[in-house]
Structure formats: C-alpha cells, structure tokens
Design a protein around this nucleic acid. Structure first.
Lengths: 240, 240
DNA sequence: CGATAGCTTGATAGAGGTCAACGGTTGTGG
DNA sequence: CCACAACCGTTGACCTCTATCAAGCTATCG
C-alpha cells in the first residue's frame, strides 16, 4: 500500500479521451483526478464484483478484458457484455446499491476504482463531469438496444458478423489492428452473449473460413473481408 | 397556452412516488416542480420523438402507453420496451444529443416534458434529485439486462410468460388488477419485443389457453394461474 | 507428459419461421 | 344503419435453422 504505487494521474493516462470528459479547465481536471481512489488488479478468472455485492464504486478499466454476466437461480446464464480498456463498468449497481451481475476478468486486468459518492459530489461541482456521467449511462442504454436488435432479429451468421465487427472497431479505436484480433473469451461465452450455443458459434466461424471471409486459428481471428461481414449483417435482403 | 392549463403540481400528482425522489425538503420540492416545463398530449399512433430528432428533454408519462423501437436502414425493427404511466422515457437521446429510437403512443397519452438542461442544473443543487436520475438510468440498464436474458436464453413460452408477468406486476403497482390486463400492443409488437414472429405469439397464447393458464379474448387477457406462469419462466428443468 | 478445458464436426431432432387461408373487429363513409 | 375495407388475430402445413447428443481432436497448464 505504498502511496506512490497507487498515485494515479488521469491527465497522463493514455485512456483519458475514453474515460474522462474533454475540455476541462485546469482546476477542474485537478479535482477529477481525485476521484480515482486506488487501482485494483484482477487476475484472470477472478471477479471484480459479484451479484449481490454492495455497490460502492464504478470502475474504469485500465488494462485487461472483462465480461459481465447474470446468473439466475434456475441456472440460466447470460453474458451481458464484454468490456475493454477505457470502458466503465459497474453501472448496474447504482439502482439497488447492490450489483446485479458479475464482472469477471478474462485476462489479468487493472482497474481504477472510482467511489460513486465521490463521483456524485464532484458532478455537482463540475458540470462537464456530470454530463459525462450521464452520457456514459446513456451510451450503455443505447448499446443494449443494439444487443436487443441483434438477439431479437438476427440469424446466427448475422450475429457473429456483427459481433466481430463491433470488437475490431473498438480495438481499432484503441490503436489495435482493424483486421486482426485475439478473442479473450471462449466460444461458449460468445454464444451466451449472442444467444447461440457454442457449437453454432464454432460452425459459423467455420462457415466464414470456408467462404474466405476470415481466418481462424483458435482464438486468433484475422478478418480478410470486412465488407463481406458488413454485407452479412445487413443481409436482410428483400428479393428485389 | 393558457398558463393555468400548463401549470403542474408534481406534489399533487398521484404518480409522484414513481417519478420523483422521496424524502425531499419543502424547498427542494418546490425547485423540482419547476422542472416540468409543460405537458404534452400524444395521440394514439403518434410519435413522442423519432430517431434522429434533437434531444432536449426527458418525458415522464402521465397517462397512456408507449412503445420504443429502433429501425435500421435495412428494414429491421426491434421494439426495445413498453412504457406506462410513471415511467421516464427519452434516456437514449443523452449520449449523442439526438434520439436513437422512436417513441410511439399505443393509446392517447399525456407526458410531462422535463428539459434535460434543467434537470442537470437542479441535480447539481439537489443531491436527492441527482441520485434519483442516476437510479432511473441504472434501472433501465438493469431492465435491459433482463431482456437480454430473455432473448438470449428463453424459449417462446418462457418469453411470453415472463412478458405477461412483468406487465401485470407493473400494472398492479399502479393499482390495476393482478390478474386482468388489456394489451395495448399488437401480437406483432409483442413478437418484436420478444424476438418472436406474431404467429408464434398467437400460438403460444393459444397453448396457454388450452392449458387453462390464461383466458384470452383479443387483447383482453385474464391470468388464471399465476403460479403456472412463474413455473414456466423457471422451467429450466434439469431431469433430476 | 498426462489431464483438463476448449474447439470442431457429424448426425439427428425439435422449435420456431414462413407461407397461406380464413375469420373476426373496428372504423369509415355512403 | 349498413356495407365495406383495412387491420388484426388464429390456425394449418411445411421447412429451415439451431439445439442437442456424441465423438474425436487440440491447446494449455500443472
């Protein structure tokens, strides 16, 4: 607990465009840096938080990759999202002051812990931060609308194509390749997120490979034909 | 535009427990009443807002029933929710300052228009309001997690049972019957929400009728055996 | 190096989609 | 008040897509 090791500097963080509001004055920036209480490391497979746990903080992912999922008493399990560096996690806990899902690290990860009371306090003083918090929550709502569209109206190929495009797009925004990606999750987790069984995910990957749209070697995926993927997603073709 | 006709009094509104924070001091209450700028009537079939439209306000539903839905260029359509009196609508618009879905009245409706800038201003002064806004957004996120579970892991019967139980539960919280309801939406709209075709919705209703679980006469539904519906939702039965 | 978890592929079955016909309700205009 | 149209809902027959069950293969990790 060496204070030096937990001292953070959002202003120097290369993720600041992703998790902080832009256009702040210097004094506002100073205040906001105080939000991050500490950093926390989460080992692969470990939980950042669990269903039922008391909600105290939001988390900004600094490194690593998470899934969030809900599990019901009767054994159903649904992955509700995959989160990567720069994204904010934990919003589900606000309403009941307890978390309603699990957040599991899919690779060794580090998060910035942001006590929600402090966020609220500062939001009352810094309008730009307030607006930022509102936008983050609204963005999550809109993202989930997109997932509902996917789950409610797309076929397996369309779902997987949309999933891959979404992943590379987000990775690209973080400086990674537009065409190559390393899946951090299993076929089963992809399937849960997409409302498919793991066999269907696997078969659909194989189909894409046969068609020369992607190359797949276990969790390494190279997208050869992005346009084809986009066509598949929009392949709601009406005859003429 | 007679000021008398648009003057509102949240403190007298019988929906105040649903859309306002509790435990306010008198002066805070006075401030919050100023949020509601005007009321707006929306005819059945008309839109409260449309995809692409500039976002300015959130809306509290006073009377009536809405659906929200997204439509893509390629003709896909997904109902993302049904909203009733006391619920807040429009949160999708915050992130891009434009709405990303349509809100359509399924019966003649009236809403309280709450300019978002005013909400933000007052949230900075009244912590209870700030917390309330955060909870409303978080609640919507959690609700959508539930829909993802439904769409991703339930079969047709389970989806429809969960849908009916959710509707009556919300109606009951508003003083309506626990067992009788009038569907404001078509089979097609139910199907869109549940990720099913209208024929499947119809067939599933018929199945429930055969089994004596509900009575259905067009849009009038009477739930005869609530427990049976709950069992269906949790009917993830493992053999022993 | 063996064990375990994860992935692929095949065969088969079942749920829900699609297409089609018909019946019932609601609303409008003559 | 009736007739007609448009919309909505139901039901049947058939087909497609995805789930299920099963076997074998391949990384990964202790």
């Amino acid at each position: 607990m060496n204070p030096l090791s937990i001292k953070v500097a959002c202003s120097n963080c290369n993720l600041r465009e992703l998790c902080m509001p832009m256009g702040l004055k210097a004094d506002e920036l100073d205040k906001i840096e105080e939000i991050v209480a500490i950093r926390r490391k989460v080992k692969r497979g470990a939980r950042l938080y669990s269903n039922g746990e008391k909600f105290t903080s939001l988390f900004a992912i600094r490194t690593g990759f998470f899934k969030t999922c809900i599990t019901t008493e009767d054994g159903r399990n649904q992955v509700t999202g995959f989160q990567m560096a720069g994204e904010i996690i934990g919003l589900d806990g606000i309403v009941k002051e307890h978390h309603t899902c699990d957040a599991v690290a899919l690779e060794d990860a580090e998060v910035c812990v942001m006590p929600f009371e402090r966020i609220e306090e500062l939001s009352r003083e810094v309008a730009a931060l307030q607006r930022h918090v509102h936008k983050i929550m609204s963005r999550e709502i809109v993202r989930e609308h997109g997932v509902m569209l996917l789950l409610g109206s797309m076929r397996a190929e369309e779902r997987l194509a949309a999933f891959l495009l979404n992943l590379v797009q987000r990775l690209h925004a973080r400086g990674f390749s537009q065409s190559e990606l390393l899946l951090r999750m299993t076929r089963e987790e992809i399937g849960s997120y997409l409302g498919l069984k793991l066999e269907t995910v696997s078969r659909t990957f194989s189909k894409f490979v046969e068609e020369g749209i992607v190359e797949v070697k276990q969790r390494h995926v190279r997208i050869i034909d992005t346009e084809a993927l986009k066509l598949i997603v929009n392949h709601n073709q009406q005859p003429c």
